[in-house]
Design a protein around this nucleic acid. Structure first.
Lengths: 110, 110
DNA sequence: TCCCGATGTGCTTCCTTATTCATAACGAAA
DNA sequence: TTTCGTTATGAATAAGGAAGCACATCGGGA
């Protein structure tokens, strides 16, 4: 008997550290775009989020973990910029792996 | 190589109908308690939620689906009561099945 | 030395969600 | 016909998250 689900099953996943939220889908997109754009403000614009929000998101992660996720610099001709630390990249990977897992399960079950 | 996840993976799932939220974890508990207590107000108290909220939750589901989820009655010595319709029970089951699936994936992956 | 564009941060809405308060409607049993 | 505990519903309030605004800070290059 095939699984005839009447309604759409939606889900949201995220990583936690000591019970505190670390990174979800939005956060993963943020980290990805920062790495791609090498800039927090450009990443925010690309994602349609406010700079304020993106910046706060990163700060929250870093405060929760006590480790740096993004390396920023100010001044210079370009005004400044940002890029992920090695640890930030690993965190992103960890989330993507989990997301992949659930997506795979869901498509098998539809 | 075993999967050494550094952080706790959490999730939230819910069913949708035409893009609108139908029932999540809270809603499942609500339906369960209504069936167990045969009363909306008792269910709300048991769950630590306000009657107003529980009642609205059910109404939202019914409005979204255009079908009745709970059958209520007023008056009488007991004041009245409520119980799930057959459809309400099926909806609850559908959610539980999905929740089970997700939990299974998590335990297999830990 | 001044300019520019990005980072850094506080404060003020705005929106969604949930609680609280208040009150009406109901109807079987006493 | 009075009582009692529940359903039904509006309105005000509170809490949280996110956007928007304003402005200070930084530092390489012209």
């Amino acid at each position: 008997m095939r699984n005839e689900s009447k309604h759409k099953l939606s889900f949201k996943i995220w990583l936690e550290h000591n019970g505190k939220p670390l990174i979800g889908k939005g956060g993963a997109q943020i980290l990805e775009q920062i790495e791609k754009e090498q800039s927090i403000s450009k990443a925010a614009k690309k994602l349609g989020m406010s700079y304020r929000y993106v910046w706060s998101y990163i700060k929250r992660i870093e405060k929760t973990l006590g480790r740096s996720v993004a390396e920023t610099r100010r001044g210079g001709k370009a005004g400044g910029g940002a890029k992920l630390t090695r640890f930030g990249k690993e965190l992103l990977k960890e989330y993507k792996r989990a997301e992949n897992l659930f997506n795979k399960v869901l498509t098998c079950n539809r």
